[in-house]
């Protein structure tokens, strides 16, 4: 019997939801497990770094890496995985675009350390202890990975072959991706493995989206009673659908919640946030500065709204500060 193709899973700066989404394959996971050998999956099975180092270079068919890259250890692991795998797939929003962790790029490392280890109201730290990369303890040298200055996408650290978008990717997308890998008919390098059209095109409420949107107010979803049959934009809710790639089958919208953009942009858009800002603002009703500003006041945090999953992959990538 020929050897089964080898598959790996790894996580970096992420919440664990992507790992859950693998288990969400439900019965299909048996199909996957039958077709491939899972040779590396620290969250579910007992593999150590040394096991990976011992593998032959290029011996893994594909490794799905989720999570952004924040620490030196994650960078080293990403490079190790790159060496051992023929194909590396950035799995989920964080590996694809930086994800929610990359909103930390709005702050410098110093600011984050000061807040998390000192200023936060729930922290008691009279000795001003900080995480150190190396410290002597009982004559042992104890080390920790270094926290980098920037949260990065996977492709800002290693070469990435494909992207599986989503927070997390849906089981259907994962299953399709595995079947594609096994079929050997590989799409061009750099492909995002999800339909290359805007979410609005696949939305069940598409027909209720007016061609002449006109915003007088924006409402946050909890602050307004939403009609579950009508386009959310037409109800004044910021729905990222127009600037977001399809493929999720409008899951959030079917729960009457607006799209927050986790699938990232289509291939025609370089910067999802700028494009969404453009689309939304063009359709504001007032024409004078004060009137426009009054409507825009309803969007208190534009960076967090438009770049919720992708500040690291945006054109600016971070807040421009003096101290980093």
């Amino acid at each position: 019997m020929p050897e089964k193709p080898k598959i790996g899973f790894y996580w970096c700066a992420s919440c664990g939801g992507c790992e859950e989404s693998v288990v969400d394959l439900a019965e299909d996971i048996v199909m996957v497990a039958d077709a491939v050998d899972i040779v590396f999956w620290p969250v579910a099975m007992d593999f150590k770094r040394a096991d990976v180092e011992a593998m032959e270079d290029g011996s893994i068919l594909a490794t799905m890496v989720n999570g952004a890259i924040r620490t030196s250890e994650q960078e080293e692991m990403a490079e190790l995985i790159r060496r051992k795998s023929k194909i590396v797939i950035a799995y989920g929003s964080c590996a694809h675009m930086g994800g929610i962790p990359s909103l930390a790029n709005e702050f410098s490392r110093t600011q984050i350390m000061e807040f998390m280890y000192q200023e936060s109201p729930s922290v008691v730290n009279p000795d001003k202890t900080r995480p150190m990369t190396s410290v002597k303890h009982n004559s042992f040298n104890v080390t920790l990975p270094e926290i980098r200055n920037l949260v990065r996408t996977l492709d800002q650290v290693i070469e990435v072959d494909y992207y599986l978008p989503g927070c997390p990717p849906t089981p259907k997308l994962l299953k399709d991706a595995v079947l594609t890998l096994l079929s050997g008919k590989l799409p061009p390098k750099g492909t995002v493995l999800s339909p290359d059209e805007a979410l609005c095109d696949q939305c069940a409420r598409k027909d209720t989206k007016p061609s002449d949107l006109s915003f007088k107010h924006f409402y946050r979803p909890h602050a307004v009673l939403l009609d579950s049959t009508k386009c959310l934009l037409s109800q004044g809710v910021v729905c990222m659908g127009p600037a977001t790639r399809a493929g999720c089958e409008a899951l959030c919208i079917s729960a009457n919640m607006p799209c927050s953009g986790c699938f990232g942009p289509t291939s025609r858009v370089r910067d999802q946030g700028a494009k969404m800002l453009s689309s939304l603002c063009s359709n504001i009703d007032p024409k004078d500065e004060d009137g426009i500003d009054a409507v825009l006041e309803d969007i208190p945090d534009p960076v967090g709204t438009f770049y919720r999953y992708g500040l690291a992959s945006s054109l600016l990538r971070k807040k421009i500060t003096e101290d980093m």
Binding site: E106, S278, L280, C281, S282, P302, V303, K318
Partner: peptide, 15 residues
Amino acid sequence: LRRFRLLKRMLKDLG
């Protein structure tokens, strides 16, 4: 003008 008003605010947040 509308894009400019929000972009200004967003750029300020991005330093």
